[in-house]
């Protein structure tokens, strides 16, 4: 299980703990920072902070489940897949997300979805977690009607 920073890694840690508690299986857990793989680095005009990725196991010939909070354009997942294959050659990469809000810009689809939430492009989906100092909530903030 590899969570995408920041927030996907927190959700991955939760899932990891739940699997350990319920199934008594300790799935190898890592976190991935995808900043250096973003496709908009040369356009955003500043250098976002790169955080350390921690993948303390070989991913060769294993099934890796990428975990993120919200699936939107798919660009983050594209970057995460590019980053992941720099660590080895997994047998397969799967994708698990808490919320799929649609509006893909790349041909990417999640394998495991907590909830599909139809949204407008300009809406905002805000995920808060206890670990980041909020309550566990997913909020759909609709764009003000034009």
């Amino acid at each position: 299980m590899v969570g995408i920073r920041a927030r996907g890694d927190l959700i991955a840690t939760r899932l990891h703990e739940a699997i350990r508690r319920n199934e008594n299986v300790d799935v190898p857990l890592g976190s991935l920072d995808i900043t250096l793989y973003r496709d908009d680095l040369t356009r955003i005009g500043h250098a976002p902070v790169v955080r350390e990725s921690v993948i303390p196991f070989s991913i060769d010939d294993r099934i890796v489940v990428l975990i993120d909070d919200v699936l939107f354009t798919g660009r983050t997942i594209r970057a995460a897949m590019d980053a992941l294959v720099d660590y080895g050659r997994p047998r397969a990469i799967r994708l698990a997300v808490l919320v799929d809000r649609g509006h893909r810009e790349l041909p990417i689809k999640a394998d495991f979805v907590g909830k599909n939430v139809p949204t407008n492009l300009a809406d905002d989906v805000r995920v808060q977690l206890i670990e980041t100092g909020g309550a566990d909530t997913v909020e759909l903030v609709q764009a003000a009607a034009a």
Partner: peptide, 13 residues
């Protein structure tokens, strides 16, 4: 440093 420890040490940044 972590990037340099990967099997493929090249990122597209």
């Amino acid at each position: 440093v972590e990037v340099l420890g990967r099997p493929i040490r090249r990122t597209p940044a």
